[in-house]
Write a protein that binds this DNA or RNA. Structure first.
Length: 472
RNA sequence: GGGCCCGUAGGGUAGCUUGGUCGAUCCUUUUAGCUUUGGGAGCUAGAGACUCCAGUUCAAAUCUGGGCGGGCCCA
């Protein structure tokens, strides 16, 4: 059984690089570091993820917009903390043609500073609120650390929802909605995640608070897939986003954002993949079922005709299906589609045509069974559900096994994955633990978790837990 | 910001230390034809590379310098 050169469980990082190339997701040979070319299959996958995101946005009354890539320096500079956070990692446009620009422009690292001057023009009255927008665009950050396909890049495929509300309370409702959206979306992607409230020193530049969405990769490192920010009126003040309330008074808006990126694809690859390649959850798989004709000399037509008939039948039942008629051996095709992570494979040969059956093979567990043509649509849909359930359960099991709640640093040492330790609330103590565990703070659990212990560093009573992990 | 390493067909490699035997190795890829197809088939004939510039030399993939590109480690 041919498999990847590097094994997922032995050398995850090398395995990941190998898979990304083999499965034709992206081409890292583009001559700028961290700017990779999306190849057709990778882009298709990303588009399907984006579609699921769009579906959620439509369901929750968000409007899609598109803002320009370039932002004038003066707009960018209005919120002080924000510049501090992003200043060192933006790309600047300083020249146009032969002329030096009077005012520099920057490539958006995120779009607050592009959008908010416009929001200030759009919003006049409380009846304009809430304003719920989103866009799916590319953003640019000058990463100096090591880059990694889909995980740390300089041109980022980015989803960002930006909302404006009458007050803090209404913005909090939005945060709640965002958590629900994440719940539904990542369920479809079969990716269990944890939500953590980031510590103050690590929140998004300019935010009132930040909630991060993290998944655990098989390497034991966490990967942040998204973040939800409560801005309060931190941006509304400098950008003058205000409205006239019912009582005639002018008030600042309260804002939130919700961001995710192509890292989702990194997580799909890492969490579900195996030594044969990708394993795509049926919800995002660009091809959900591939039909492989098993052709024997003299029986080409009957086999191909049954394949075509089945193709039409599945297509009409809303299944994304493909018939692979390439002139290569069936085995070759199996390997190819396994690499691409297609959830179900159907084999049809002369024997099957005769018996009015098909052979159905599951990608995730390699289970093979014969199914009657008559009942195949129903069975395929059941298999989709079952595959999704299994993928989610396996990932959840791994996450649970690698989350440790302990009371002392001694117990924490040597544990893999996510570690929760009592925390007194002081930055110094968390930093100390970061150093000892050689990891990063993820934040506190967002749901209240009882903690009656003492801080393992300073010994003071701790009411909450702090999560630590090695991160990407 | 500081340090280290690397660059040979589309991908992976051998050759470099000690310049000549390189008209550059092997696997994969790829084109045409025949043949085959229930887990990467076979045969025949083809295609495809020394990162760029300068230097040393009778002679450079191999040595020197620089450019471009890539990777790693430390802060």
């Amino acid at each position: 059984m041919p498999e990847t050169k590097y094994k997922k469980t032995e050398d995850f990082n090398e395995w990941y690089n190998e898979i990304v190339e083999l499965a034709d997701l992206c081409d890292k040979r583009y001559p700028i570091k961290g700017m990779n070319v999306w190849r057709p299959y990778g882009w298709k996958l990303m588009s399907h993820v984006d579609k699921l995101t769009r579906d959620e946005m439509i369901k929750t009354d968000h409007q899609e917009v598109y803002f320009p890539l370039l932002i004038p320096e003066s707009s960018f500079k209005k919120e002080e903390e924000h510049i501090e956070g992003f200043g060192s990692e933006v790309y600047w446009v300083t020249h146009a043609g032969l002329n030096k620009l009077e005012e520099r422009w920057l490539l958006r690292p995120t779009s607050e500073t592009a959008m908010y001057p416009m929001f200030s023009l759009w919003i006049r009255s409380h009846t304009d609120l809430p304003l719920k927008t989103y866009q799916i665009v590319n953003t640019f950050r000058y990463e100096t650390k090591q880059t990694r396909a889909f995980i740390r890049v300089r041109e980022i495929h980015f989803f960002e929802a930006h909302t404006c509300h009458v007050d803090f309370k209404d913005a909090e409702k939005q945060i709640k909605e965002d958590k629900d959206i994440a719940g539904r979306l990542f369920q479809k992607l079969c990716l269990p995640f944890i939500l953590s409230k980031r510590p103050d020193w690590d929140k998004f530049a300019g935010a009132f608070y930040t909630i991060s969405i993290d998944v655990l990769m098989p390497s034991g490192r966490t990967l942040q897939l998204g973040s939800i920010h409560q801005y309060r009126d931190n941006f509304a003040k400098p950008y003058e986003i205000s409205y006239e309330a019912e009582d005639g008074k002018h008030k600042n808006c309260h804002q939130t954002t919700y961001g995710m990126s192509e890292r989702i694809l990194g997580a799909l690859i890492g969490v579900h993949g195996d030594n044969k390649g990708l394993v795509m959850p049926p919800e995002v798989a660009p091809t959900q079922v591939v039909i492989i004709p098993i052709i024997f000399k003299g029986k080409e037509k009957t086999v191909l005709d049954s394949c075509d008939t089945l193709y039409e039948k599945l297509k009409n039942n809303g299944i994304r299906v493909h018939v692979d008629k390439r002139d290569i051996t069936p085995g070759n095709k199996y390997y190819d589609w396994e690499l691409k992570g297609v959830p179900l494979r159907i084999e049809i040969g002369p024997r099957d045509v005769e018996k009015k059956e098909i052979v159905l093979v599951r990608r995730d567990i390699s289970e093979k069974k014969s199914v009657s043509l008559k009942s195949c649509v129903k069975i395929i849909k059941e298999e989709f559900r079952s595959i999704s359930e299994d993928l989610y359960k396996n990932a959840e099991k791994f996450l649970k096994e690698n989350m440790h709640r302990v009371k002392t640093v001694e117990e924490a040492k040597g544990l893999k994955g996510i570690i929760e330790l009592p925390w007194c609330g002081k930055e110094d103590c968390a930093m100390e633990i970061e150093n000892i565990l050689e990891g990063n703070t993820l934040g506190e659990p967002i749901e209240h978790v009882e903690c009656k212990n003492v801080c393992p560093v300073c010994g003071k009573p701790s009411k909450t837990w702090m999560r630590y992990a090695k991160t990407y």
